[in-house]
């Protein structure tokens, strides 16, 4: 089966500073990949580059999405192709009832009450409500590729479970997902097919779900201490070539 998303040697700069420095990633339909890594590694940049945000300049490399050159498309075109980015910090929008008109039947996915429809998008929402709303919109838009950018940050355990449950219900053989997270705990609820470690703009390690546990246990410092090399065979880690 061919890849839904194929990122090759991706370099990207923000305000002239290189953040992604040759990132390679392949994701097949139906897979969930987790991307973990320390602050400043480039996790959010990856999501923004894939979504086509202004100010994120690709200087080198290629991104194929279902065989199409994703980087040529405008952000809204990417969205229409089925790329969805759940924001780390969803902005407050003013009243836009039209958007919510689509959606009533999707509410039960996230246990969101009908009263939400009478509120403006993200206006006056708590952090948890905003994140839930992101997943809710994902349920409505039914994307081909969903990128969840630190959707777990700032959530208490109940909200985290609700969000994870929503994501799991949206898991399907036709849909790919990239879950960007700083902590392992989200992966207790969303079990990824692969876990990648992003450090200094590159994927430095790739493994199964157990890699996340290892990271949780030993922290990212372990990477800097040359930990990758010391991983033993049964963690099934492929180390990226430098």
């Amino acid at each position: 089966m061919s890849s839904m998303l194929k990122i090759t040697n991706l370099h990207a700069t923000v305000a002239g500073k290189e953040i992604l420095k040759g990132l390679d990633l392949e994701l097949k339909a139906g897979e969930i990949h987790a991307i973990m890594g320390p602050n400043g590694a480039g996790k959010s940049t990856l999501g923004n580059v894939l979504a086509g945000r202004e100010g994120y300049e690709v200087t080198q490399g290629e991104v194929l999405f279902n065989g199409k050159n994703l980087l040529e498309l405008e952000p809204e075109e990417r969205a229409c192709e089925g790329v969805f980015l759940a924001f780390q910090y969803p902005v407050e929008m003013l009243d836009s009832v039209g958007f919510l008109r689509l959606v009533r039947q999707k509410l039960e996915v996230l246990h969101i009450g009908d009263e939400l429809l009478h509120r403006a998008v993200n206006e006056g929402f708590s952090g948890g409500e905003k994140k839930r709303n992101e997943i809710f919109q994902m349920a409505v838009l039914e994307p081909t590729l969903a990128i969840l950018d630190e959707t777990d940050s700032g959530l208490d355990i109940d909200a985290l479970k609700t969000v994870a449950e929503g994501v799991n219900r949206l898991r399907s053989k036709d849909r790919g997902m990239i879950v960007v997270t700083h902590y392992q705990r989200l992966l207790d609820y969303i079990v990824p097919d692969k876990v990648h470690v992003l450090a200094d703009g590159r994927l430095v390690a790739t493994g199964g779900a157990e890699l996340a546990l290892k990271l949780e246990e030993q922290g990212y410092a372990w990477l800097e201490d040359g930990g990758i090399a010391t991983l033993d065979a049964d963690s099934a880690v492929e180390t990226a070539s430098p």
């Binding site: 979504a51 952000p75 809204e76 980015l85 924001f87 003013l94």
Partner: peptide, 23 residues
């Protein structure tokens, strides 16, 4: 806000007029 709308597949002009209409 605009990028948020674009990311949801709403064009910039539609996004602005949607926000302004609501306003």
């Amino acid at each position: 806000q605009l990028f948020y709308c674009l990311q949801r597949g709403i064009s910039e002009e539609d996004a602005v007029s949607m926000i302004v209409d609501g306003f």
